[in-house]
Amino acid sequence: MTAELLQLPILLVLFFVLLFGIGFILNMLLKTTWLTIYLYIFVMLPLVFYRLYDTDMSFWGNLKSYQIADYLTALGGLAGAYFSGSAIKTLREKGYKMF
């Protein structure tokens, strides 16, 4: 029980930083602002759900089979993707031409 409580905050920070970094670089290179959050919501989450989908269970049964740690990890990644877009937007508004 103690190991899981220690691993969850580390996992959340890891996914946040991972998606923030990837999103920041993609947004900077492709000159977009919200590309990462769109990719995360419309590509990554459905791919993970499809990969782990159990055909013996219903749609709602599959959603109920995930634990709270799975949902928190997804939210941590979503927050990282969102904040990468808002960081790029803020840098552009401040006048940084590179971003």
Rank of each mutant, 00 (worst) to 15 (best):
F20G: 10
G21D: 01
G21T: 13
G21W: 06
I22M: 15
I22E: 03
I22A: 13
I22F: 14
G23K: 01
F24E: 12
F24M: 06
F24T: 06
I25E: 02
L26G: 03
L26N: 06
N27P: 05
L29C: 08
L29W: 12
L29N: 08
L29D: 13
L30R: 15
L30D: 00
L30N: 14
K31V: 07
K31S: 09
T32F: 13
T33W: 05
W34K: 04
W34C: 05
L35D: 10
L35K: 06
T36C: 02
Y38L: 07
Y38W: 14
L39K: 06
Y40Q: 01
Y40F: 11
Y40W: 12
M44I: 15
M44W: 14
L45S: 10
L45K: 01
P46L: 06
P46T: 10
P46K: 09
L47R: 01
V48A: 07
V48E: 01
F49A: 13
Y50T: 15
Y50P: 04
Y50I: 15
R51C: 04
Y53M: 02
Y53W: 00
Y53N: 00
Y53Q: 02
Y53D: 13
Y53I: 08
T55K: 01
D56N: 04
D56R: 15
M57K: 15
S58N: 00
F59A: 05
F59Y: 03
F59D: 08
W60L: 13
W60S: 05
G61M: 04
L63C: 00
L63E: 03
K64V: 04
K64M: 11
K64Q: 12
K64F: 04
Y66H: 02
Y66R: 06
